[in-house]
Amino acid sequence: MSNQNMPALPEPVVYPTSGIRCYSAGQMADYASAYAARRSEALRRERDSAMQWLGSANAELEKCADLLPGTYYMDPPDGGSVSVSEQLARMIARLEADKAELVEALKESIDLAWIEDSHAIQLDGTVVFSSNYDFSGIDGCRRQEFYGKYSAIIWPGSKWSAYCTYEGSMWFEKFDSAEEAKDACMRLLDRVLPEHPAMKARAVLANHGAAK
Rank of each mutant, 00 (worst) to 15 (best):
residue 107 K to W: 04
residue 95 L to Q: 14
residue 108 E to G: 01
residue 22 C to H: 12
residue 82 V to Y: 00
residue 45 R to V: 07
residue 42 A to Y: 14
residue 26 G to M: 06
residue 73 Y to I: 03
residue 84 V to T: 15
residue 62 E to V: 05
residue 65 A to E: 10
residue 87 Q to T: 00
residue 30 D to W: 03
residue 26 G to D: 12
residue 37 A to D: 11
residue 79 G to A: 01
residue 59 A to R: 08
residue 99 K to E: 15
residue 104 E to D: 09
residue 77 P to R: 05
residue 20 I to D: 00
residue 86 E to L: 12
residue 31 Y to C: 04
residue 130 S to Y: 11
residue 107 K to T: 01
residue 58 N to P: 01
residue 91 M to Q: 14
residue 38 R to I: 10
residue 126 T to L: 08
residue 90 R to T: 09
residue 57 A to L: 11
residue 26 G to I: 07
residue 40 S to F: 06
residue 80 G to P: 01
residue 67 L to K: 06
residue 103 V to S: 04
residue 24 S to C: 08
residue 78 D to Q: 12
residue 36 A to V: 04
residue 24 S to D: 10
residue 104 E to M: 08
residue 82 V to G: 00
residue 68 L to T: 09
residue 55 G to A: 13
residue 79 G to I: 01
residue 31 Y to H: 15
residue 126 T to Y: 07
residue 46 E to F: 03
residue 89 A to S: 15
residue 36 A to M: 10
residue 110 I to W: 03
residue 29 A to D: 08
residue 19 G to E: 12
residue 80 G to K: 00
residue 60 E to R: 14
residue 31 Y to A: 02
residue 92 I to K: 14
residue 67 L to Q: 09
residue 90 R to V: 01
residue 46 E to I: 03
residue 109 S to R: 06
residue 71 T to N: 09
residue 66 D to V: 02
residue 46 E to A: 13
residue 73 Y to A: 03
residue 105 A to F: 10
residue 60 E to N: 12
residue 36 A to H: 11
residue 81 S to N: 07
residue 56 S to A: 11
residue 27 Q to G: 02
residue 100 A to D: 12
residue 64 C to V: 06
residue 20 I to R: 11
residue 38 R to W: 04
residue 72 Y to K: 15
residue 25 A to T: 11
residue 66 D to K: 14
residue 72 Y to H: 13
residue 21 R to A: 13
residue 130 S to F: 08
residue 71 T to A: 12
residue 103 V to I: 15
residue 22 C to S: 10
residue 61 L to H: 11
residue 117 D to H: 12
residue 109 S to E: 09
residue 84 V to Y: 00
residue 50 A to F: 04
residue 84 V to P: 02
residue 53 W to V: 07
residue 62 E to Q: 11
residue 112 L to R: 15
residue 93 A to R: 12
residue 22 C to R: 12
residue 82 V to N: 02
residue 127 V to I: 15
residue 34 A to V: 02
residue 61 L to N: 12
residue 74 M to C: 14
residue 82 V to L: 07
residue 58 N to H: 08
residue 111 D to Q: 11
residue 114 W to L: 07
residue 68 L to Q: 00
residue 44 R to Y: 08
residue 124 D to F: 06
residue 35 Y to H: 09
residue 84 V to H: 01
residue 35 Y to Q: 10
residue 124 D to M: 07
residue 34 A to L: 13
residue 77 P to K: 05
residue 112 L to Q: 14
residue 122 Q to F: 08
residue 123 L to C: 13
residue 68 L to F: 10
residue 85 S to M: 11
residue 42 A to L: 14
residue 27 Q to E: 03
residue 50 A to D: 05
residue 80 G to W: 02
residue 111 D to H: 07
residue 117 D to M: 04
residue 27 Q to I: 01
residue 116 E to W: 10
residue 63 K to F: 01
